[in-house]
Protein backbone atom coordinates (compact mmCIF):
# COMPACT_ATOMS: atom_id res chain seq x y z
CA UNK A 1 0.00 0.00 0.00
CA UNK A 2 1.25 3.46 -0.84
CA UNK A 3 1.86 5.19 2.46
CA UNK A 4 3.80 8.17 1.17
CA UNK A 5 2.62 11.31 2.93
CA UNK A 6 3.99 14.24 4.87
CA UNK A 7 4.93 13.71 8.50
CA UNK A 8 2.09 15.94 9.64
CA UNK A 9 -0.42 14.00 7.58
CA UNK A 10 0.94 10.72 8.88
CA UNK A 11 0.62 11.90 12.47
CA UNK A 12 -2.91 13.23 12.08
CA UNK A 13 -4.11 10.22 10.08
CA UNK A 14 -2.74 7.89 12.76
CA UNK A 15 -4.59 9.87 15.42
CA UNK A 16 -7.78 9.84 13.35
CA UNK A 17 -7.60 6.07 12.80
CA UNK A 18 -7.18 5.51 16.53
CA UNK A 19 -10.41 7.44 17.09
CA UNK A 20 -12.25 5.28 14.57
CA UNK A 21 -10.73 2.00 15.72
CA UNK A 22 -11.05 2.64 19.45
CA UNK A 23 -14.76 3.44 19.07
CA UNK A 24 -15.31 0.00 17.54
CA UNK A 25 -13.02 -1.80 19.96
CA UNK A 26 -14.57 -0.31 23.09
CA UNK A 27 -18.08 -0.86 21.79
CA UNK A 28 -17.23 -4.48 20.93
CA UNK A 29 -15.96 -5.06 24.45
CA UNK A 30 -19.06 -3.52 26.06
CA UNK A 31 -21.36 -5.52 23.79
CA UNK A 32 -19.49 -8.74 24.43
CA UNK A 33 -20.35 -8.32 28.12
CA UNK A 34 -23.83 -9.44 27.06
CA UNK A 35 -22.53 -12.84 26.02
CA UNK A 36 -24.54 -15.36 28.01
CA UNK A 37 -26.47 -12.54 29.72
CA UNK A 38 -28.89 -11.45 26.98
CA UNK A 39 -32.57 -11.02 27.86
CA UNK A 40 -33.38 -13.97 25.59
CA UNK A 41 -31.25 -16.40 23.62
CA UNK A 42 -31.99 -14.79 20.25
CA UNK A 43 -31.03 -11.33 21.48
CA UNK A 44 -27.93 -12.68 23.19
CA UNK A 45 -26.83 -13.95 19.77
CA UNK A 46 -27.72 -10.69 18.06
CA UNK A 47 -25.70 -8.55 20.49
CA UNK A 48 -22.66 -10.80 20.37
CA UNK A 49 -22.85 -10.95 16.56
CA UNK A 50 -22.76 -7.17 16.52
CA UNK A 51 -19.84 -7.26 18.96
CA UNK A 52 -17.99 -9.52 16.52
CA UNK A 53 -18.68 -7.11 13.65
CA UNK A 54 -17.25 -4.28 15.73
CA UNK A 55 -14.17 -6.34 16.62
CA UNK A 56 -13.56 -6.98 12.93
CA UNK A 57 -13.94 -3.28 12.18
CA UNK A 58 -11.53 -2.37 14.98
CA UNK A 59 -9.05 -4.87 13.59
CA UNK A 60 -9.15 -3.22 10.15
CA UNK A 61 -8.90 0.31 11.48
CA UNK A 62 -6.19 -0.29 14.07
CA UNK A 63 -4.31 -2.48 11.59
CA UNK A 64 -4.30 0.41 9.14
CA UNK A 65 -3.32 2.78 11.96
CA UNK A 66 -0.27 0.60 12.63
CA UNK A 67 0.69 0.65 8.95
CA UNK A 68 0.29 4.39 8.74
CA UNK A 69 2.35 4.92 11.87
CA UNK A 70 5.12 2.81 10.37
CA UNK A 71 6.71 1.90 13.71
CA UNK A 72 5.99 -1.81 13.42
CA UNK A 73 3.01 -1.83 15.79
CA UNK A 74 0.24 -4.26 14.79
CA UNK A 75 -3.48 -3.76 15.35
CA UNK A 76 -3.24 -6.16 18.29
CA UNK A 77 -0.39 -4.16 19.81
CA UNK A 78 -2.50 -1.03 19.59
CA UNK A 79 -5.54 -2.75 21.07
CA UNK A 80 -3.87 -4.52 23.96
CA UNK A 81 -0.71 -2.64 24.81
CA UNK A 82 -1.92 0.94 25.02
CA UNK A 83 -3.01 2.49 28.31
CA UNK A 84 -6.20 4.31 29.10
CA UNK A 85 -4.94 7.82 28.31
CA UNK A 86 -3.84 6.64 24.86
CA UNK A 87 -7.37 5.56 23.94
CA UNK A 88 -9.36 7.91 21.72
CA UNK A 89 -12.89 6.44 21.84
CA UNK A 90 -16.03 8.42 22.61
CA UNK A 91 -17.13 8.57 26.22
CA UNK A 92 -20.63 7.43 25.22
CA UNK A 93 -19.21 4.04 24.25
CA UNK A 94 -17.15 3.36 27.36
CA UNK A 95 -19.96 3.84 29.88
CA UNK A 96 -21.12 0.65 31.64
CA UNK A 97 -23.50 -1.38 29.53
CA UNK A 98 -26.37 -0.97 32.02
CA UNK A 99 -29.62 -2.79 31.34
CA UNK A 100 -30.83 -3.88 27.92
CA UNK A 101 -32.61 -0.56 27.34
CA UNK A 102 -29.42 1.39 28.17
CA UNK A 103 -27.51 -0.71 25.64
CA UNK A 104 -30.16 -0.26 22.94
CA UNK A 105 -30.22 3.53 23.43
CA UNK A 106 -26.44 3.76 23.26
CA UNK A 107 -26.33 1.55 20.19
CA UNK A 108 -29.00 3.57 18.47
CA UNK A 109 -27.39 6.95 19.19
CA UNK A 110 -24.09 5.66 17.85
CA UNK A 111 -25.44 3.53 14.97
CA UNK A 112 -27.42 6.48 13.62
CA UNK A 113 -24.20 8.49 13.62
CA UNK A 114 -22.10 5.67 12.16
CA UNK A 115 -24.56 4.97 9.36
CA UNK A 116 -24.41 8.59 8.17
CA UNK A 117 -20.70 9.05 8.86
CA UNK A 118 -19.44 5.90 7.12
CA UNK A 119 -21.77 6.54 4.21
CA UNK A 120 -19.86 9.76 3.64
CA UNK A 121 -16.44 8.28 4.41
CA UNK A 122 -16.89 6.01 1.37
CA UNK A 123 -16.05 9.09 -0.69
CA UNK A 124 -12.69 9.47 1.04
CA UNK A 125 -9.80 10.55 -1.17
CA UNK A 126 -7.60 8.12 0.77
CA UNK A 127 -8.48 4.76 -0.76
CA UNK A 128 -7.80 2.51 2.27
CA UNK A 129 -10.27 4.60 4.29
CA UNK A 130 -12.88 4.46 1.54
CA UNK A 131 -12.49 0.67 1.36
CA UNK A 132 -12.95 0.27 5.11
CA UNK A 133 -15.98 2.57 5.07
CA UNK A 134 -17.70 0.51 2.36
CA UNK A 135 -17.31 -2.64 4.41
CA UNK A 136 -18.34 -1.00 7.67
CA UNK A 137 -21.42 0.61 6.14
CA UNK A 138 -22.83 -2.77 5.20
CA UNK A 139 -22.59 -3.98 8.79
CA UNK A 140 -23.70 -0.72 10.37
CA UNK A 141 -26.84 -0.69 8.23
CA UNK A 142 -27.93 -3.84 10.01
CA UNK A 143 -26.80 -2.61 13.43
CA UNK A 144 -28.97 0.47 12.96
CA UNK A 145 -31.94 -1.59 11.90
CA UNK A 146 -31.53 -3.72 15.01
CA UNK A 147 -31.16 -0.88 17.53
CA UNK A 148 -33.77 1.36 15.85
CA UNK A 149 -36.46 -1.32 15.78
CA UNK A 150 -35.78 -2.21 19.40
CA UNK A 151 -35.83 1.40 20.51
CA UNK A 152 -39.24 1.87 18.89
CA UNK A 153 -40.55 -1.26 20.61
CA UNK A 154 -39.21 -0.34 24.03
CA UNK A 155 -40.33 3.28 23.75
CA UNK A 156 -43.77 2.44 22.42
CA UNK A 157 -44.00 -0.74 24.47
CA UNK A 158 -45.26 -1.10 28.03
CA UNK A 159 -45.46 1.69 30.57
CA UNK A 160 -42.40 0.27 32.29
CA UNK A 161 -40.28 -0.16 29.16
CA UNK A 162 -41.18 3.37 28.07
CA UNK A 163 -40.19 4.81 31.44
CA UNK A 164 -36.90 2.93 31.57
CA UNK A 165 -35.79 3.69 28.05
CA UNK A 166 -36.71 7.39 28.36
CA UNK A 167 -34.47 7.49 31.42
CA UNK A 168 -31.65 5.78 29.48
CA UNK A 169 -32.02 8.37 26.77
CA UNK A 170 -32.02 11.31 29.19
CA UNK A 171 -28.91 9.96 30.91
CA UNK A 172 -26.87 9.26 27.78
CA UNK A 173 -27.94 12.28 25.76
CA UNK A 174 -25.25 14.51 27.32
CA UNK A 175 -22.54 12.41 25.69
CA UNK A 176 -23.88 12.79 22.17
CA UNK A 177 -22.29 16.21 21.70
CA UNK A 178 -18.95 14.48 21.47
CA UNK A 179 -20.02 12.53 18.38
CA UNK A 180 -19.33 15.69 16.37
CA UNK A 181 -16.10 16.66 18.06
CA UNK A 182 -13.56 18.15 15.71
CA UNK A 183 -10.11 19.61 16.15
CA UNK A 184 -7.02 20.25 14.03
CA UNK A 185 -6.80 16.53 13.23
CA UNK A 186 -10.14 16.67 11.42
CA UNK A 187 -9.35 20.03 9.87
CA UNK A 188 -6.12 18.76 8.34
CA UNK A 189 -7.69 15.63 6.84
CA UNK A 190 -10.84 17.49 5.78
CA UNK A 191 -8.68 19.89 3.78
CA UNK A 192 -7.27 16.85 1.92
CA UNK A 193 -10.87 15.60 1.37
CA UNK A 194 -9.99 12.39 3.15
CA UNK A 195 -12.71 12.58 5.83
CA UNK A 196 -16.32 13.80 6.03
CA UNK A 197 -17.28 17.20 7.36
CA UNK A 198 -18.91 16.72 10.77
CA UNK A 199 -20.93 19.88 10.17
CA UNK A 200 -22.70 17.94 7.40
CA UNK A 201 -23.11 14.78 9.46
CA UNK A 202 -24.72 16.46 12.46
CA UNK A 203 -28.00 17.73 10.93
CA UNK A 204 -28.60 14.36 9.23
CA UNK A 205 -28.06 12.57 12.54
CA UNK A 206 -30.39 15.05 14.17
CA UNK A 207 -33.18 14.33 11.68
CA UNK A 208 -32.82 10.56 11.96
CA UNK A 209 -32.81 10.66 15.75
CA UNK A 210 -35.73 13.07 15.98
CA UNK A 211 -37.84 11.00 13.62
CA UNK A 212 -37.05 7.73 15.40
CA UNK A 213 -37.78 9.17 18.85
CA UNK A 214 -41.12 10.37 17.52
CA UNK A 215 -41.93 6.86 16.31
CA UNK A 216 -40.80 5.48 19.66
CA UNK A 217 -43.04 8.03 21.49
CA UNK A 218 -39.95 9.20 23.37
CA UNK A 219 -39.25 12.78 24.36
CA UNK A 220 -36.16 14.23 22.73
CA UNK A 221 -33.98 15.62 25.51
CA UNK A 222 -32.92 19.25 25.27
CA UNK A 223 -29.56 20.02 23.73
CA UNK A 224 -26.67 18.61 25.74
CA UNK A 225 -25.53 21.24 28.22
CA UNK A 226 -22.62 19.20 29.51
CA UNK A 227 -20.16 18.44 26.73
CA UNK A 228 -17.32 16.29 27.99
CA UNK A 229 -15.45 16.44 24.66
CA UNK A 230 -12.32 15.19 26.30
CA UNK A 231 -12.37 11.47 25.56
CA UNK A 232 -11.16 12.08 22.00
CA UNK A 233 -8.05 13.59 23.57
CA UNK A 234 -7.49 10.67 25.93
CA UNK A 235 -9.23 11.97 29.05
CA UNK A 236 -11.75 9.34 29.99
CA UNK A 237 -14.33 8.49 32.60
CA UNK A 238 -13.37 6.22 35.48
CA UNK A 239 -15.01 3.30 33.67
CA UNK A 240 -12.58 2.86 30.79
CA UNK A 241 -9.62 1.78 32.91
CA UNK A 242 -11.57 -1.06 34.50
CA UNK A 243 -12.84 -2.18 31.14
CA UNK A 244 -9.37 -2.16 29.61
CA UNK A 245 -7.90 -4.08 32.55
CA UNK A 246 -10.43 -6.77 31.84
CA UNK A 247 -9.85 -6.70 28.11
CA UNK A 248 -6.06 -6.50 28.13
CA UNK A 249 -5.00 -8.76 31.00
CA UNK A 250 -4.73 -11.92 28.94
CA UNK A 251 -2.65 -10.38 26.17
CA UNK A 252 -0.39 -8.65 28.69
CA UNK A 253 0.06 -11.71 30.89
CA UNK A 254 1.08 -13.88 27.95
CA UNK A 255 2.91 -11.59 25.53
CA UNK A 256 2.88 -12.89 21.98
CA UNK A 257 0.74 -15.91 22.84
CA UNK A 258 -1.29 -17.43 20.02
CA UNK A 259 -3.90 -20.18 19.91
Amino acid sequence: MDMKMSEETRRTLFEYLLRLGDDQLVMAQRLSEWCGMGPILEEDLALTNIALDCTGQAEMMLGLAGEVEGQGRSGDDLAFLRDEDEFRNLQLLEMPRGHFGDTIVRQFLYDAFAWIYFGKLRESGFQPLADIAAKVLKEVTYHLRHSREWLIRLGDGTEQSHYKVQKSLDTQWVYTGELFFTDEVDAHLLALKWVPDMAEVQPLWDDLVTQTLLEATLRRPVEPVFLPMEARLGRHSEYLGHMLANMQILARSHPGASW
Binding site: E42, E43, L45, A46, N49, Y142, R145, H146, E149, W150, R153
Partner: peptide
Amino acid sequence: EIALQNARDV
Protein backbone atom coordinates in the same frame (compact mmCIF):
# COMPACT_ATOMS: atom_id res chain seq x y z
CA GLU B 1 -39.77 -7.71 12.11
CA ILE B 2 -37.96 -8.91 15.23
CA ALA B 3 -38.58 -12.50 14.12
CA LEU B 4 -36.77 -11.71 10.85
CA GLN B 5 -33.89 -10.07 12.70
CA ASN B 6 -33.61 -13.00 15.09
CA ALA B 7 -33.75 -15.43 12.20
CA ARG B 8 -30.91 -13.55 10.56
CA ASP B 9 -28.80 -13.77 13.71
CA VAL B 10 -29.64 -17.34 14.63
